[in-house]
């Protein structure tokens, strides 16, 4: 056994570390306590919020899964029901998808997938974002919902400390390509993702002009969709993201090169101390 690196051992430890098997993968929910340890918080409160967050994920899976033949989205795909007959969340999600399609210049387009309507590129992020909103109240410093690499967060692991998230190196599975100081959410898409192929909506065929693309921003559903768009579009996708308020992107090219928009929150140095002026506070 390797000794645990000292820098890792000093990390704040989450008070909740929950692994949930849902949406065909593992979703990790980590809750970090405020320095007072949640004094004054009603007992059981956090447990209820965790249960609600988990329920949100399972509801999203049951409603939007294209793998479950009985899900409303699967029935919609087969033409058994219309979107008006589907649960209200389906219409709501499709509205969000339409916004993402337009913002991405059509590079994200659930209506142009082989096999019919496929909002999967939006659902995982959307579900994690909603699960995050189950948490509130005193005693919590930060919450992180990691849905197989698409991460929604609020706060940080300790007062004044932002969450730091690594971006996997698409060419070397056990290395990081970059570290991000996170405010809000980050989604990463690449050729290693579910299904192993990204579809170019313009041709309907597998295509990816970047090895991976990461997008940060306030909403994980949109970030998820935009990451897919940029991974397919390649560098022109960066210019597109630059025009969307609050969202930033980083792409790793097939040759390993990294390019990012001007305000992408990349940590300048992997060992740099946390910057106390970042707007992360316990609540």
């Amino acid at each position: 056994m390797k000794p645990r690196p000292a820098a890792v051992a000093r990390q704040p430890v989450p008070v909740v570390h929950h692994l949930e098997n849902v949406m065909g993968t593992i979703v990790i929910i980590d809750v970090y306590a405020a320095a007072d340890g949640g004094a004054g918080r009603p007992a059981g409160d956090l447990g209820r919020q965790l249960a609600e967050a988990v329920a949100v994920l399972h509801r999203a899976d049951a409603t939007f899964s294209t793998w479950r033949p009985d899900s409303p989205v699967s029935r919609l795909r087969r033409g058994e029901i219309t979107s008006a007959q589907a649960p209200a969340e389906v219409a709501e999600l499709l509205e969000h998808c339409a916004v993402a399609r337009d913002l991405s210049g059509g590079w994200f387009n659930p209506w142009a997938m082989p096999g019919g309507l496929d909002p999967s590129g939006y659902v995982k992020g959307w579900a994690a974002q909603h699960a995050l909103s189950a948490f509130s109240g005193g005693g919590i410093c930060g919450v992180l919902v990691n849905a197989a690499g698409d991460i929604a967060s609020t706060g940080g692991p300790a007062d004044g400390m932002p969450f730091r998230v690594g971006i996997a190196d698409p060419h070397t599975p056990l290395r990081l390509a970059a570290i991000v100081e996170l405010t809000g959410t980050i989604a990463t898409s690449g050729t290693y993702e579910r299904g192993d192929h990204l579809i170019d909506p313009h041709s309907g065929r597998p295509a990816a002009r970047a090895a991976s693309a990461s997008v940060t921003g306030p909403d994980l559903g949109l970030a998820d969709a935009l990451a897919t768009a940029v991974a397919v579009a390649g560098e022109p996708g960066l210019d597109l993201i630059g025009t969307i308020e609050g969202y930033e992107a980083l792409i790793i090219g097939p040759d390993g090169s990294r390019r990012w928009t001007s305000r992408f929150p990349i940590a300048a140095d992997r060992t740099a101390p946390h910057r106390p002026w970042l707007p992360s506070r316990c609540y």
């Binding site: 990390q11 197989a148 692991p157 998230v165 996997a168 991000v180 992997r270």
Partner: peptide
């Protein structure tokens, strides 16, 4: 990454 104290990873084999 050894020195990198991080709370999560975005995009990985487990995707």
């Amino acid at each position: 990454a050894q020195s990198a104290s991080i709370q999560g990873v975005s995009g990985a084999s487990y995707t």
